[in-house]
Each structure stands twice: as structure tokens, then as C-alpha cells.
Amino acid sequence: MVRSTAYIASGKEREIFAAASRNGLPVLLKGPTGCGKTRFVQAMAEALGRPLITVACHEDLTAGDLVGRFLLRGGETVWEDGPLTRAVRDGAICYLDEVVEARADTTVVIHPLADHRRELNVERLGVKLIAPPEFMLVMSYNPGYQSVLKDLKPSTRQRMVSIELRFPSPEIEERILVQETGIDIDNARRLVRLGQAIRQLQHEGLPEAASTRTLVSTALLIKDGVAPQDAAEAAITGPLTDDPVAAKQLLEMMRIYIA
């Protein structure tokens, strides 16, 4: 099943993103996991009619992985563009997901691209690529997730226009569930109330809250014929906690919210 890419905005994020894109400004998306960051970028790429190149950053991701490298093929060396170089050449949106995870040396290539210069220095090839106006750099970052040691450098942050996404308000979240999954409004409301309630729990057993993503998954399962209670257990409790005591109390909560 292919889900629609229509995106329901919670605030002014769409307008800000579009304006940033018109003016060649890079965007930093902040927000908890599962609140719709990736979804938003997809929807905007579609709305602006640009290709989207996504890079999931990890702690071994180096500048070379972004820009490109020579590969050994037989006795020859062959150059292969990295995703960032491809995005610059094609005038695409390059989305660096969880950018703080990447190694510090990536800032060397990101900085000149992210300010007025908009240039990518491909050192190995000895060329400087000037990004076309269509090219856009988008990064995401989950402030609650990383430790203090892994934080974005102020010099990187300053180059960005930041858009803070939060979990949507109850009314909007209900609409999202209905639109994404086709679930009826009563069930959507129940799920959203449960989500809102779980977000109040700052218990140690629950490092993350029930996200919009988990609520959508639950709704999809319900829509497919799974009993609401089982769907919530599978899509919310399971991913949220391994602690048996916390799980038991969550289940009790769900029973009351979903019954």
C-alpha cells in the first residue's frame, strides 16, 4: 500500500521551508523521533518538484562518504560521486538525517555549502562545484536524543534556518490519523488521547514517548482488522519499553483508553 504524501502542517513550517528554499538558505529540522521530520521533507520535495536525496548519518560517516571517492576497480581507480555531490550537480534537496551522528570532519564540506558561498569543494578531483539555485541542504536533529558530547557546533547551527517540529496538537493529530490510515474518527480520537497521555509519562522506563508514527502504525493495524487492544500493544507498548513492570502498566492504560 502506498500512502499519500499529503502533509498536514502544525504551524508555519511549510511557508518557512518554501521561503528558505527560494532564498538558498539551508534548513535545520528539530524535533522528537517520529514527529514527522522525514515525512515533511518528502512532502516539501514533492511540492517544490525537486528530487530528494536522503543520507542517514552514522558515526562512521566521513566527508569522503558525502562527497565521493575513488574506488579500486581491477588495477584502475574510478571516481564515484557521493550523495552530496550528486545533489549539487542535480540541483536536488539533500537531506542529512540525524546529522550530529556524522563525524566532525563532515562540517568541512557542509560549511561552505551552507553559507553564501554555496560551493562544494571536491578536493580529490581538484574542483569546486557551485550549487545551482535549486539545490537545498536540509538537516535533521533530535535534541532530546543525543548526549551532550554530540551536539551541533554553533558555527554549523548559525548557518541554518531552524524549523522546530513538535508532536501535533490533538485536533491535527486526529486528522493525520484519519487521512493517513482511513481509520474512523472515534478510533482516531481514542488513539490520540492515548498518545497525549503517554507523552505525560516521564517515567524512567520510557525514554521516548508514543510518537505520531507509532499512532499511525497502530491505526493501520486496526484498519487491517487487528483488534484495537492488540494493535496498540504491538505498535506502541512493544517498541516503547522492554521493562515488564512498565509494560504491564502501559497495557492497563491502553485497556482503559482504547476500550
Binding site: 497521555a197 505525560q200 509519562l201 502498566q249 492497563e252 492504560m253
Partner: peptide
């Protein structure tokens, strides 16, 4: 009573 702990905390908005 302990099984209602999360329920109580969620509605109250803090640990009770």
C-alpha cells in the same frame, strides 16, 4: 493498585 500507576501519572501530568 500499582497497575494504575501510569494511568494516574498520565492524567495528573506528573509522578503520583
Amino acid at each position: 493498585a500499582s497497575r494504575y500507576l501510569f494511568l494516574a501519572c498520565a492524567v495528573a501530568g506528573r509522578r503520583v
